[in-house]
Design a protein around this nucleic acid. Structure first.
Lengths: 181, 181
DNA sequence: ATCAACTTGTGCAGTAACACACAAATCAAG
DNA sequence: CTTGATTTGTGTGTTACTGCACAAGTTGAT
């Protein structure tokens, strides 16, 4: 892994932080690059050094979080759902400002579908329709069923301001998944 | 005023912040430039681009705060002591991490004497020994008397963790000063 | 519809921060 | 005292950030 320059890391972090903040204040369309540059205390030009435009910035931001979740899945490959879920939900908690603006706002269908697609991908290796409790069922159907269920639960939890204790939600969803896979 | 480069401002701020943090954790002598560089997330070389050594860094930091207080005095020149003090004490409050490490630690005689010298300087224009209630008294004596009184009160307030309400302390000290000048 | 104000994306030259490397100084035990 | 590890201050070449300027595109109010 080619170590990134300190300045790059700091600039990108400031830009992303500013962008997420702004996203929670006004809609994506009304955010200008100038806004981000002001908030991040970074030259406007610097933003273009890293991102093509604000759409690209959003894409990269999403991609980054999905990637982090993917890594989490890998490192939790040999845990059961209860334990694995806790890692997931703790990640959501740490990055709640991002997920709440991405999931809990009305127009955010883009991220939801991206997120759902990813959840289904990750779930795929867990489903076995050749033997066990799901023998004979349609794999695609199962994936969509539980994928949507997971996404909805996460969304609701976040939309509700994380009021349920993280451990409780993670554990209960873990039980439901363990029971079905 | 020649505007400072964004990078300069950010670097210096990070360095000073890190330094103050470290000062509240260990003694000045035991702080290395490397420590500061790590904490500030700035290249070690960058620190030397701005400061000769850690002594210089401390000097600049002190000088900067004294200067800010001086500006405050200018802008409050036509207010009475009660109002003026409030601005002072609010500044102490905003920068309490600095002042508490500088005033409330045992070995910090350096800053105390620097600070006292400055307070006396500022007080000088307020004292009139040719007429009024202080007519006939020794000016130098008065300055030392009230200078030390002010410094002590500020020190004690800060050492006590700012537990007294800022307004109250500022007002009471203001009353005492208004009564005497 | 018009016009001014703002936004966007890009080019460019100047400057600050960067990593790295080195010798000298300082420190900490044995 | 001696040795080994840190720390210090500095030189150097590279890279990222910066401000500025400009043409083209948007916006928004009259």
């Amino acid at each position: 892994m080619p170590k990134v320059d300190r300045r790059v890391q700091k600039s990108q972090e400031a830009i992303k932080k500013a962008f997420i903040e702004l996203l929670s204040e006004k809609s994506f369309d009304h955010i200008t690059i100038q806004d981000i540059s002001d908030r991040a205390n970074v030259g406007r030009r610097t933003i273009y050094d890293h991102y093509i435009d604000k759409f690209d910035l959003l894409d990269k931001l999403i991609e980054e979080h999905i990637n982090e979740l993917r890594k989490l899945c890998e490192s939790a490959a040999d845990l059961d759902f209860v334990e694995g879920n806790l890692m997931w939900f703790e990640y959501f908690e740490r990055n709640s400002s991002f997920f709440s603006t991405m999931l809990a706002s009305k127009g955010a269908t883009t991220f939801r579908s991206h997120f759902l697609k990813f959840v289904i991908e990750e779930l795929e290796s867990e489903v076995d329709v050749t033997e066990g409790k799901n023998k004979g069922l349609n794999k695609d159907l199962i994936l969509k069923f539980f994928g949507a269920a997971i996404v909805e639960l996460v969304t609701a939890w976040i939309a509700n301001g994380l009021s349920e204790p993280t451990q409780v939600v993670a554990e209960q969803m873990g039980i439901l998944l363990d029971r079905n896979f």
